[in-house]
């Protein structure tokens, strides 16, 4: 399966980043990054929905086991995975019917990547921090938005350094 080892490497890298780097760069009162969201955003479309769902759940459970509370990462991550295809079709209504077989988000330009990834990240964070703090207030909405912006910065760095395909 093409790209399997890259996805495995990305998952491992993200788990390491979540455990080591995030506590160092996060601001608990202002914005908390969760760069692992990029895993659900970037899972290859051509692998099919069943395998994709299995990987999405597997990665979520790994995060849950390493960074409790259990269930929260999987729940929020599956939202991202579940919505990304519909979101992409909404952004590109003229995609051909068999687009999943050939399309990959790794070809996105930075602007396209922002339009694709930021709303999904924001959606993830609204669920994550809303459920995590178990309240829905303007403070949580602001914190989620700031965190999504900060997370996107890290996602963009990962995207540019490791994932983006550059054409010659």
């Amino acid at each position: 399966m093409k790209g399997a080892w890259q996805i495995g490497l990305l998952a491992t890298l993200l788990l390491l980043v979540e455990g080591t780097l995030v506590p160092l760069v996060g601001f608990p009162e202002l914005a908390w990054p969760i760069p692992s969201v990029i895993f659900w955003i970037m899972l290859p479309f051509q692998w099919g929905d069943r395998l994709g769902l299995l990987l999405a759940i597997g990665f979520g459970l790994s995060l849950d086991m390493l960074f409790p509370p259990i269930g929260l990462h999987t729940f929020c991550g599956l939202w991202v995975w579940g919505l990304r295809k519909a979101w992409l079709r909404m952004l590109n209504p003229n995609l051909p019917s068999e687009w999943e077989a050939s399309f990959t988000p790794t070809v996105f330009q930075p602007g396209e990547f922002f339009i694709y990834a930021f709303p999904l990240t924001l959606w993830h964070h609204l669920w994550y921090f809303g459920l995590g703090r178990w309240t829905l207030s303007s403070a949580i909405l602001l914190f989620s938005t700031l965190s999504a912006t900060y997370t996107f910065l890290w996602e963009w760095i990962i995207f540019e350094l490791f994932l983006r395909k550059r054409h010659a």
Binding site: L53, G60, T74
Partner: peptide
């Protein structure tokens, strides 16, 4: 999966 995750949480 969403139901189980939310329940576990």
């Amino acid at each position: 999966a969403q139901g189980v995750s939310l329940y576990l949480y």
